[in-house]
Design a binder for these strands. Structure first.
Length: 257
DNA sequence: ATGTCGGCCTTTGGCCGA
């Protein structure tokens, strides 16, 4: 089973990239983030033609998440249970069940806009996500959480100069919140199979970041214990960043036996 | 060198978010 996640930075701008990638990689499930459109504008037909059904949680201008799957699935949540406040109204969460497991796609708040209130929204999202993971663990459900976490967990996960020291992607409280989730007993799939060195998933459009390999590892797939035992492969697909008019993120692909 | 994108309104340029 091949499960993937990709922040596409506008699905309308990236429709051809995603269609070509689906054809080449053939994932069973692909979570998308930063659709930047409402559900009616989502180019559903282009993916249906390739055998993928879509479930879309859209929003005008910002955010927006979706799942594309060529296997049968059911949507069980389109917002993060337990989350309240402004951030709860944004399109950042989709949870499905398929093949006997729960799969969650997230677009975690960046946290650099909106001052301290904006940052508090990021931490609130992470606290609610931790509670959701705890509930699934308690229910003995096999699950994975994939998406744009907007967290660089360790110093090795961002290139020198790629972020300012106080950036919300690396603030101590951000990293502590990420650790709290991982330490529930989850496995960071990419890091587990690539224990050393940079494994970037994002390169800013500015300052020739891609050409200088000045990137970040902020897109992650966390697996519950039994899924972690079945982990066969996990890696970002760097090739996509070199395409014409790419997203600033590349897909992350996880294979479960 | 406040550098690049995408979307939207304030709408043919400026603003926000990333």
């Amino acid at each position: 089973m091949k499960i993937a996640s990709w922040n596409v930075n506008s699905i309308r701008q990236r429709e051809r990239h995603v269609a070509a990638w689906l054809g080449r990689v053939q994932p069973d499930v692909l979570f998308l983030q930063e659709l930047k459109c409402q559900e009616p504008e989502f180019p559903r037909a282009a993916f249906q033609a390739l055998g993928y059904e879509a479930a879309v949680v859209g929003q005008k201008s910002y955010n927006g998440v979706a799942v594309l799957a060529r296997v049968p699935f059911e949507v069980v949540h389109t917002s993060l249970p337990g989350l309240e406040g402004e951030v709860a109204s944004q399109a950042r969460y989709i949870e499905i069940t398929t093949a006997g497991m729960t799969l969650i796609g997230i677009y975690l708040p960046n946290g650099n806009s909106g001052g301290e209130a904006g940052y508090a929204g990021k931490l609130a999202f992470m606290a609610a996500l931790k509670a959701r993971a705890e509930a699934l663990l308690s229910a003995d459900v096999d699950f994975a959480i994939l998406g744009d976490w907007n967290v660089a967990p360790e110093d090795v996960d961002y290139a020198k100069g790629a972020l300012s020291p106080g950036d919300a992607l690396v603030r101590p409280a951000t990293r502590a919140a990420y650790r709290e989730i991982v330490w529930l007993g989850l496995t960071d799939a990419v890091r587990a199979l690539h224990p050393q060195g940079p494994v970037y998933t994002f390169w800013d459009y500015q300052s020739a970041c891609w050409q200088r390999d000045c990137g970040l590892r902020i897109d992650h797939a966390l697996l519950s214990p039994r899924l972690a035992e079945r982990l066969a492969a996990a890696a970002p697909d760097r090739r996509e960043r070199g395409e014409e008019q790419p997203s600033d993120h590349v897909p992350v692909v996880v294979e479960i036996t």
